[in-house]
């Protein structure tokens, strides 16, 4: 079966975001949810429902996915603007989705 280039992310309050599959795969959590070898419901329907993330936060996360994808090969990338009031919630979401430095393939290991 040929996979769609896009996937749908759904927030807890029902907002749906259609995202480029490759961009969303920066998140190891989403990647494993959508792994075609797994038998998860998400993998079959290409829909991920996040019962803990609000639409407002998920919107920012989706913005980050595309920001990351656009700047994948670039050096000296300008920082994305994070609204202060969303900061803590976004931090929770980032932790949940595994968007820390371990997810970055070009991360340098420190000892």
């Amino acid at each position: 079966m040929d996979l769609s280039k896009y996937i749908t992310l759904v927030s807890k309050d029902g907002f749906e975001f259609v995202v480029l599959r490759q961009a969303a795969f920066i998140s190891p959590a989403i990647k494993s949810m959508l792994d075609p070898r797994s038998q998860f419901q998400e993998a079959k329907t290409s829909r991920c429902i996040f019962g803990e993330i609000s639409g407002e936060v998920l919107e920012k996360v989706v913005e980050y996915f595309h920001y990351w994808y656009k700047n994948k090969e670039r050096e000296d990338v300008p920082d994305m603007d994070i609204p202060v009031e969303l900061c803590l919630e976004l931090l929770m979401a980032a932790d949940y989705l595994g968007l820390d430095s371990k997810a970055n393939p070009d991360r340098q290991v420190r000892y």
């Binding site: 996360v61 980050y64 920001y67 990351w68 700047n71 994948k72 090969e73 670039r74 050096e75 990338v77 920082d79 994305m80 994070i82 202060v84 900061c87 803590l88 976004l90 931090l91 980032a94 932790d95 989705l97 968007l99 820390d100 430095s101 997810a103 970055n104 070009d106 991360r107 340098q108 420190r110």
Partner: peptide, 18 residues
């Protein structure tokens, strides 16, 4: 040793803002 190609992880961005 904190150099990498591409965007910073979302976590780092949030922590910097915080």
């Amino acid at each position: 040793g904190t150099y990498h190609v591409g965007a910073k992880p979302l976590m780092n961005l949030c922590i910097e803002t915080l």
